[in-house]
């Protein structure tokens, strides 16, 4: 039976126009010493997340004693658009800080874990770097950097796949036919994420690790354009001393939005297993002892997808 939880809707921010839901254990004592968790929107999807991912994460972590706030940045979901001239990055940081302040006011917590999928992961990383109240960041399909191992797997699979060849042929025929009919832009629009330079990310990781921040990188196989084997993170960040504060998990069967419930449950289990590492992190004596923390979900330990 699941632990009893409380959920409460919140309006916060300078103009009380940001909408969120606070999930917490029914008994306040269970939250003692635990940071507050804040879930950051993935793209334009509102705070519920794809396949209700954020609701599942919030309730699982709250069952473990973490107060969790999922909210909408301005202009997303139920939150109003801003009327000032702040840039996207500035407003994102300001509103994440508003969320931390709101959680402090509601629950008294002063240390935070930030968490998100895709653009939510990117924001979690950047905000964790910028705000010293953050003691943990869990990034689902966040920044990734290709390695030789990545390219080997990527191209081996593509060249061996009949389905890929068929698709390529279809694309060539479609483009040729479009060009013949006078079309000007045969290419379909494609969403491409821009990651910061790897050196910059390594430097930021070092800064956060030195601060005692726990970093959790979770990659689905659905992020195949950027990440396609479990140890890719280790290889790409070879020059980064994890100091026992980096956890990497790879989900070889999951698509990017963890659509299947069984995959979502694996994700939730992995995050749940990692989150306690942030409890009173500044007081823990083990900093610098554990060189590399291996993936937490045994099920996710397989290397390259077998299919």
């Amino acid at each position: 039976m699941s632990a009893p939880l409380k959920e409460k809707a919140m309006l916060f921010g300078r103009t009380r126009s940001l909408v969120g839901v606070l999930t917490e254990p029914a008994r306040n004592a269970e939250s003692r010493g635990k940071p507050g968790v804040i879930l950051l929107n993935s793209g334009l999807l509102h705070r519920v997340g794809p396949s209700r991912m954020y609701v599942a994460l919030a309730r699982a972590l709250a069952a473990d004693g973490f107060p969790v706030l999922r909210f909408d940045f301005s202009g997303i979901g139920d939150s109003e658009s801003r009327r000032d001239a702040l840039s996207g990055d500035e407003s994102t940081l300001e509103e994440a800080r508003d969320a931390m302040d709101a959680l402090t006011a509601a629950r008294g917590v002063r240390r935070f874990i930030l968490m998100g999928l895709c653009s939510g992961a990117d924001n979690a990383f950047q905000i964790a770097r910028a705000d010293e109240r953050v003691v943990g960041a869990a990034m689902i399909d966040g920044y990734a950097y290709r390695t030789i191992g990545f390219h080997w797997r990527y191209w081996s699979e593509r060249l061996a796949s009949g389905r890929r060849w068929k698709r390529l042929l279809q694309r060539v025929v479609r483009r040729a036919s479009h060009a013949a009919s006078g079309g000007s832009n045969p290419a379909e629009p494609m969403y491409v994420r821009a990651f910061p330079a790897k050196e910059r990310v390594i430097a930021d990781c070092r800064t956060m690790i030195a601060r005692g921040v726990e970093l959790c990188f979770l990659y689905s196989a659905g992020q195949y354009q950027y990440y396609n084997y479990r140890r890719q993170f280790d290889h790409a960040f070879r020059r980064l001393d994890y100091a026992g504060r980096v956890t990497v998990t790879y989900f070889p069967d999951a698509n990017h939005t963890f659509t299947r419930r069984s995959h979502l449950e694996e994700l939730v289990s992995a995050v749940r297993a990692w989150a306690p590492r942030t409890i009173e992190v500044s007081e823990r004596p083990d900093a610098g002892v554990d060189p590399v923390v291996r993936p937490v979900a045994q099920k996710a330990l397989a290397d390259v997808p077998a299919s």
Binding site: P50, S51, R52, R163, A221, G222, Y224, P252, D253, N255, H256, T257, T259, R260, R261, S262, H263, P305, S307
Partner: peptide, 29 residues
């Protein structure tokens, strides 16, 4: 639609058909 969506997603499904009982449909149990 769920089967078509997941066929188009990566990684390709391991089995020919999805299991709505276990995995729901497009995120909905």
């Amino acid at each position: 639609l769920n089967e078509q969506f997941l066929r188009n997603e990566y990684p390709p499904p391991r089995s020919r058909s999805e299991n709505p009982e276990r995995d729901g449909v497009l995120g909905q149990p």
